[in-house]
Design a protein around this nucleic acid. Structure first.
Lengths: 209, 209
DNA sequence: CCGTCACGATACTTGACCGTATAGTAAAGT
DNA sequence: ACTTTACTATACGGTCAAGTATCGTGACGG
C-alpha cells in the first residue's frame, strides 16, 4: 500500500496510456502470437510512442507477461448470475457447461491458449501463472459445487476432484480442437447438444437417483 | 505407379538426404515452433546444404507442410497389437485409453499440437490435413468399435459418434493442459488412475449391465 | 518560472533470417 | 569424353524487427 500519489517532481504518469498499451498488446499477442507481433505495431495501434512502451516494460517478453497476468483473474466466476443449487445438479451442471463452453469459444480465450501453448518451453512463469489462475481455479470451483451436491445427497462420484476434471474435459473434444485449429466453431445448436449430452453422461454415471 | 528409376540423365537424387532434412525439420519445428526455427539451423542439423533444401521445398512454409503431412498417418492404428473385443468394452476401452494417453504424452505429438494451434489462422491447409488424419480419424476409429459393442449388446450409448468424442475428450483435462503448457507430465501411476476413472465413468453411463 | 519528469517523433544500430546467386565438385547417363 | 543433374560451400541482398539515442514539447511541483 504505497501512496497513490507519491508527489514526485515532474510530470506524473498517465495511467490511461498504460491501459491502451496493454489493450493493444493483448489484442495483437492473442490474435497473432508472440513472434508475429511487433512492438512498432503495438505502438501504432495504442497511439503511444515506442519509447514510452519501453519506459514501462523493459522488453517485449515483459510486456507479454503483463498481458498474460492481465484479466486472467476476471475470466470466470462460477457464482456469477445464477446461484448454484446443490439439489438440482443436472440443471446446475447445464448452466456451468453452457458458460464454460461460451468461455472456451471466445476468440480471446482461444488466443490465450494458443499463445501459451506455443510459449510452453520459453515463458515458464506466464504458463504457470495462467494454469493456476485459469484451469486449476475452474476445476476447483466445479469441485466445490460437486462437494455441495454430494453433501445434499444429489450426486455420488468417487472423487469430486476427479469428477470435476472429467466434467470440464468433456467440453474439450473434437469440436474444441477443430475451433482451436481455426477450422470453424460449432453452431450454437451443436454446442447446446454437446452440453446436454455431457450432462446426461455425467448424471447417468454419478447421479444419485 | 511411375517408373521407380526414370533413368534420366545426370546424377540421381539421394532419398536419404530428403529424409534427413525432414527429420531435422520435424524435430525443430515441433520443439521450437515455426517462427523460431531457421532454415540455416535445419540445414546444419541435417548436414545438408541449404540450397539442396530449397531444391526440394520452394519455401519454409512448404517444408513445414511436408513435416506436418509426414507421419500423421502412422500416428495411431487402433487395431495394432490387441484385437478389440466387442463383448468386453471395459477392458477394451482401458486398452484404448492407455494407448491414447501414451500418444498424447509423447513430446512429438504435443509439439505437433502446439505448433498447429499456433498456426491456426496462417497455415489453414496444414491444420485441416492434421485434423482429418488425426483427431477425426481417431474418433471415427473409436466410434467403429463402439458400434460393434452396441451390436454385441454390451453398450447402450445414445449416439456412438458423440460417445466416442466424449470418451477421448476425457483424457484432455487438467493433466493434459498442464503438460501442454510445459509444466510437467503426470506420473504413470496418475495416468493409470485416469484411465481407470474414465473407463468407469463411461461404463457406468453407457454400460448395458 | 524553472527543474524535472513524461511523452512524441524519428532516425539509427544491430542482428537475424529468408531466399538467391555463384562457383565448384560429384555422380550418373550416352 | 561430354552432358546433365545433384549437391556443397559461401557469400550476398533485402527485409524486418528489437532496442537505443536524440531532440523537442508538454505537464506538473516547488
Amino acid at each position: 500500500m504505497t501512496e497513490p500519489t507519491l508527489s514526485r517532481p515532474g510530470r506524473p504518469r498517465d495511467p490511461e496510456r498504460m491501459r491502451r498499451v496493454i489493450d493493444a498488446a493483448s489484442r495483437q499477442f492473442l490474435e497473432q502470437g508472440f513472434e508475429r507481433t511487433s512492438m512498432d505495431a503495438v505502438a501504432r495501434e495504442s497511439g503511444v510512442s515506442k519509447m514510452t512502451i519501453y519506459s514501462y516494460f523493459p522488453t517485449k517478453a515483459a510486456l507479454f507477461e503483463a498481458v498474460i497476468g492481465q484479466r486472467t483473474d476476471t475470466v470466470f466466476d462460477l457464482d456469477a448470475g445464477e446461484t448454484l443449487e446443490p439439489r438440482a445438479p443436472a440443471a446446475t451442471l447445464s448452466v456451468i457447461g453452457r458458460r464454460f463452453l461460451a468461455l472456451m469459444r471466445a476468440d480471446e480465450v482461444m488466443g490465450r491458449h494458443r499463445v501459451l501453448f506455443a510459449a510452453a518451453g520459453i515463458q515458464h512463469e506466464a504458463c504457470a501463472a495462467f494454469f493456476r489462475q485459469g484451469p486449476e481455479k475452474l476445476i476447483g470451483g466445479v469441485r466445490d459445487y460437486l462437494d455441495q451436491a454430494v453433501a445434499a445427497g444429489a450426486l455420488r462420484p468417487h472423487d469430486t476432484r476427479v469428477a470435476a476434471d472429467q466434467f470440464l474435459s468433456l467440453f474439450l473434444g473434437g469440436a474444441h480442437i477443430r475451433a482451436m485449429l481455426g477450422l470453424g466453431k460449432p453452431s450454437p445448436e451443436e454446442d447446446a447438444r454437446l452440453v446436454q449430452a455431457n450432462v446426461e453422461l455425467f448424471m447417468r454415471a454419478y447421479g444419485a437417483t
